[in-house]
Nucleic acid binder design. Structure first.
Length: 500
RNA sequence: GGCCCCAUAGUCUAGAGGCCUAGGACGCCGGACCCUCAUUCCGGAAACAGCGGUUCGAAUCCGCUUGGGGCUACCA
């Protein structure tokens, strides 16, 4: 057991573990965010604790309408559920930070009264100038502390001028982050400047709000991305100034794009929504995300969410940033494509079928068609493609296929002959179909394959696909015969339109 | 620039001093199977960033260098 965890999960008092995922509603649910949410969720469930969803909407200017709803939907689609949140409430609400500003303002006042923070009247322009000056001298851009030095009777304190509230950061000593993943990380206080706690519009800055909200929501473990590690000492300083207990921290490695830079739109699909649209199953995405930064102790890679809950352990979280690899995601998806229950797969593929306006109400049984298609599809998009010929007659024939399999001048008559034999078949199943082809090939003195390939091309328009006899069995007798005759006619009348 | 984190194959990772002539997975290459494709099954190439220590012994510990990432906002 992890030393750092002892004392909170053991013995009499038994404090319940509470974690949270606190996204900012400024866009879509990112795979990085989804991974953070997932790890929080797994940690909570593993320890029989609670998982809270909190919306970090302090910055009104950056708020994107619909973003929160999208994130909630995205998380739910992945099977990540929370015990408390803006959509379901809970005893520690409200769960939108914007609804908690009064609470934040009270705390700011407390710090002000205690002389642990101060009002700063420097204008953004002044600060900008100062920053530029420092940078040009290759000095770290920090706030000078000008307003901290103002005498208490400075008339500006009585004025109506807008101000921000800044933290009085101690110039000496060090602040230590005991990170559950990285261990002891030491920051010297003198590196920090007097950072802003409250903006001039009266709303709190993230670093301040997060401290109060985590405390108010009784969060015991703050599990978040590594980009927050450097800000943690500021937050610890706030906890101390407010005399609040400091939670445990765990900073997850980041997920980077293939070019080793931070994930962004230009890297293609980066949101959960986009992966859904591309036909990635939620189960596969979750499983893939799970492997980005965490591994089971026994090399197991494909696992259920329940297994992940059982095995999850922060001690096994990687320290190094991970680069996401679409190829492995797609492979993972193909694994789920062929193993999830057929009913589930039907539910997933139906929207794709609908969006292409493929009418599956007539024709072969969808489940049987899917069984043949899932084996050779990596995504739902591919599956839908593999399904189309069952419900739509080929409008054209693969060009290469025509050259190869329709070249023989006897092709039309052979297809017709096959149609005749097939029409008379009493039992339409795999074995009987094989028998027909064997017999036909024998009579013609050719190989069975010489009949199989033209048939597939004639019936599906393609050269690739399921085994012919499985395919015909599902397609049905009437339809098969009709398509063979159609193809024969098309060839004879030179109507063969090659697929470009 | 300053501070912080990180460093095993192209990628995800196992590895917590001898079990490592470094294991698994994706991808890649070759082969087998087969009516095509996809599977599946065999086989193969491919890594401990570099340099110094510590130690009988280092991928594992320490230092430096290099490289990558993060933070440094009245963003989160």
């Amino acid at each position: 057991m992890n030393k750092l965890l002892m004392g909170i999960s053991c013995s009499g008092g038994k404090r319940v573990i509470r974690v949270r995922y606190a996204p900012s509603p400024t866009g879509t649910l990112h795979i990085g965010g989804a991974r953070t949410a997932l790890f929080n969720y797994l940690f909570a469930r593993h320890h029989h604790g609670q998982f809270v969803l909190r919306v970090e909407d302090t910055d009104r200017a950056r708020l994107v309408p619909g973003s929160e709803e999208g994130m909630v939907a995205g998380l739910r689609s992945l099977g990540i559920n929370w015990d408390e949140g803006p959509d379901i409430g809970g005893e520690f609400g409200p769960y939108r930070v914007s609804e908690r500003v009064l609470r934040h303002q009270q705390a700011v006042k407390r710090l002000l009264d205690q002389g642990l923070a101060y009002r700063c009247y420097c204008t953004p322009e002044e600060l900008e100038q100062e920053r530029k000056r420092l940078e040009s001298q290759k000095l770290p851009p920090r706030y000078s502390g000008k307003c901290r030095l103002r005498p208490p009777n400075d008339p500006i304190f009585q004025s109506d001028e807008p101000f921000v509230v800044r933290m009085k950061v101690p110039s000496k000593g060090e602040t230590v982050v005991n990170d559950l993943i990285r261990g002891r990380v030491v920051f010297e206080n003198r590196i920090l400047d007097d950072f802003v706690l409250q903006k001039s519009d009266g709303t709190p800055v993230y670093n301040f709000a997060v401290v109060l909200d985590d405390h108010d929501m009784a969060i015991t473990h703050v599990i978040r991305g590594e980009e927050h590690l450097s800000n943690t000492p500021k937050q610890i300083l706030i906890y101390e100034a407010l005399n609040l207990p400091v939670p445990q921290f765990a900073h997850l490695p980041m997920i980077l794009a293939p070019d080793h830079t931070k994930l962004s739109k230009r890297h293609g699909a980066t949101s959960v929504e986009e992966y859904r649209e591309q036909g990635i199953l939620p189960e596969a995405l979750v499983n893939y995300l799970l492997l980005l930064g965490w591994s089971a102790s026994d090399d197991t890679e494909i696992m259920t969410l329940d297994q992940a809950i059982e095995w999850f352990d922060l001690n096994r979280v990687q320290h190094t940033a991970a680069i996401y690899d679409i190829k492995k995601l797609v492979w993972m998806n193909s694994q789920y494509m062929r193993t999830i229950p057929i009913g589930t797969l039907i539910d997933y593929v139906l929207p794709f079928i609908k969006s292409r306006q493929l009418d599956v109400s007539r024709g072969p049984d969808l489940a049987r068609a899917i069984e043949l298609g899932r084996e050779r599809s990596h995504t739902l998009l591919e599956l839908r493609e593999a399904l189309t010929f069952f419900y739509e007659r080929p409008r054209s024939f693969d060009e290469q296929g025509v050259k190869k399999h329709f070249a023989d001048e006897k092709t039309p008559e052979r297809l017709r002959a096959l149609a005749q034999s097939l029409k008379k078949l009493r039992v339409w199943d795999h074995d009987h179909l094989v028998a027909v082809y064997d017999e036909e090939a024998k009579q013609l003195g050719i190989k069975r394959a010489a009949l199989i390939h033209p048939t597939r091309l004639a019936v599906t328009g393609k050269t690739v696909g399921p085994g012919l006899f499985e395919l015909l069995e599902v397609l049905g007798q009437e339809e098969t015969v009709a398509r063979l005759l159609d193809a024969a006619t098309a060839i004879t009348e030179q109507h063969v339109k090659p697929t470009p």
